[in-house]
């Protein structure tokens, strides 16, 4: 069976400077893959090329057998790619629960007529969405905040809202951009347990992270980027012992 996500020779430059060059990556179904690298390694660019926020200059992104690198991001989301950004990309002016419920939009069937006439099918679907949203809030530990305005939550929890919102869309591939940054130790442990849990459910996760320690405990495999290229790939233990990885993180010269 083909991998859920395959990236081939992916390239993207900004003003002539390569952010990602000739990156290859394969993520099989059910795997928890981490992409790590020092600042400026091209992690975020790669993340946005897969999520659809950026278009590549060359190369391809294949998801579940479809070439998606030219798809707009909403189409990728509908195909089952859930995205959680590092920054707070929430819907201000809506409650936490509404933020999560709207995440189901990609899998909702009722159209405008159903909504306006309040057809039975629409009402049933509305109840299902509410149920799913409450489950997702419970999973992310945000149930107590459900009816609060999302603006009132601290930044770390707003990221939790994004995660619950992504889960409400029943994704098959979850993209997480530095989910642990800015979290306290206890919050990190909770997040790690949650991600572990999602993997157990069969969700494929691609985790972009700066923090090697956080990733080492979680990931099945780790891909290391430096200066826009893959410099190592393997289990966390293998990668941590790799000289080039150590050198990249310490900023030392690498003799290839």
């Amino acid at each position: 069976m083909h991998p859920l996500l395959r990236v081939n020779g992916l390239r993207r430059s900004f003003d002539g400077v390569f952010a990602v060059r000739e990156v290859d990556l394969e993520v099989p179904r059910g795997e928890l893959r981490a992409v790590i690298g020092p600042n400026g390694a091209g992690k975020s660019t790669l993340f946005n090329l897969i999520g659809g926020q950026l278009r590549p200059d060359g190369g391809e992104v294949v998801y579940d057998g479809d070439r998606i690198d030219r798809w707009p991001s909403h189409r990728r989301a509908r195909a089952g790619i859930g995205v959680v950004f590092q920054g707070a990309r929430v819907f201000r002016g809506m409650t936490v629960l509404e933020n999560v419920m709207v995440g189901a939009h990609g899998v909702t069937r009722s159209g405008f007529l159903g909504a306006v006439t309040r057809a039975p099918r629409h009402r049933r679907e509305e109840r299902e969405i509410l149920g799913t949203a409450r489950e997702c809030l419970a999973r992310t530990g945000l149930s107590a905040w459900a009816d609060r305005a999302v603006d009132a939550l601290p930044l770390g929890q707003q990221r939790g809202v994004q995660l619950a919102r992504a889960l409400c869309g029943r994704p098959r591939l979850l993209l997480l951009d530095e989910p642990a940054s800015g979290l306290r130790a206890a919050e990190r442990a909770e997040l790690a347990a949650l991600v572990e849990n999602l993997r157990t459910d069969g969700l494929t996760v691609l985790l972009v992270e700066h923090d090697v320690a956080f990733v080492s405990r979680l990931a099945d495999r780790v891909t290391v980027l430096d200066l826009g290229q893959v410099i190592a790939e393997g289990t966390p233990t293998q990668v941590r012992a790799d000289e080039r990885v150590i050198a990249a993180y310490l900023g030392a010269e690498v003799s290839a």
């Binding site: 909403h74 995205v83 201000r92 809506m94 009722s110």
Partner: peptide, 29 residues
């Protein structure tokens, strides 16, 4: 009722609030 209690209404409101994030969750802005 439409804007607050239907998926389409919420999607419209979400576009109004943050079009960038709306695209990411599958809304065709």
């Amino acid at each position: 009722l439409f804007f607050g209690h239907t998926d389409l209404g919420r999607a419209l409101t979400a576009c109004a609030s943050n079009p960038y994030a709306a695209r990411v969750i599958g809304i065709d802005v």
